[in-house]
């Protein structure tokens, strides 16, 4: 049997969850034996080259590009896993939810202490190449179907490892309290 194929991405996240994935230390060698990676920042494959078995999503969706990538993952992955607070609930980026987007943009480009007087033409970025911002930050499951959730900010390396191994081997997932607690 061929090895299961894994893809990963970071949407509106900080890459902290991916750092946590690397925190599995020497087990990464074992991981490479267990799975093959496709589209992922880990191997720098930019586009899906085949159908995958598992997709790991870090971060929620704050702009149109996030939505496209997430939908692409849903299309290419049999199992989709939200991992980390931002993917599950929106996380820190979602602090802007509830504030009108115009106010956020004005603060970021016109009135904030670090930008005031430095944008004399009062330009808000509007190039067609730039992704369009969403009205609020959405957790992934409010956009596509998510099969599993791994909580944490970031999720512990042990949790990611245990979950992946359990999924691949079909063994029962061991979840001691230390592994799923949030801080």
């Amino acid at each position: 049997m061929s090895k299961p194929i894994v893809a990963t991405t970071s949407l509106a996240g900080c890459f902290g969850c991916h750092m946590s994935l690397l925190d599995i230390d020497e087990r990464i060698l074992k991981l490479i034996e267990l799975v093959e990676f496709n589209k992922s920042p880990i191997d720098d494959i930019k586009k899906f080259t085949k159908q995958c078995d598992i997709g790991l999503i870090e971060g929620g969706c704050c702009n149109s590009e996030n939505v496209h990538v997430l939908k692409d993952f849903r299309k290419h992955c049999k199992i989709l896993i939200s991992f980390g607070e931002c993917a599950l609930m929106g996380g820190l980026p979602a602090l802007r939810n509830g504030i009108p987007i115009k106010e956020c943009l004005d603060e970021a480009y016109l009135n904030g202490p670090t930008v005031v007087n430095s944008n004399p033409d009062k330009i808000l970025p509007n190039d067609d190449e730039i992704p369009m911002m969403l009205d609020k930050v959405y957790p992934c499951h409010e956009i596509v179907k998510i099969d599993y959730y791994l909580p944490g900010c970031p999720p512990r390396a042990d949790l990611i490892w245990e979950a992946l191994v359990a999924l691949i081997t079909g063994n029962e997932l061991k979840l001691p309290y230390e592994v799923v607690k949030f801080d």
């Binding site: 149109s64 939505v67 009108p100 987007i101 115009k102 943009l105 808000l124 970025p125 509007n126 067609d128 369009m132 911002m133 969403l134 009205d135 609020k136 959405y138 499951h141 409010e142 956009i143 596509v144 179907k145």
Partner: peptide
């Protein structure tokens, strides 16, 4: 499954704020 998410509605407000047409 259908999340009911509507991308064109979700980007409307920001496009209006910066003055661009949603693409």
């Amino acid at each position: 499954f259908n999340s009911g998410f509507d991308l064109s509605a979700a980007v409307g407000e920001s496009c209006e704020a910066v003055g661009r047409t949603p693409n």
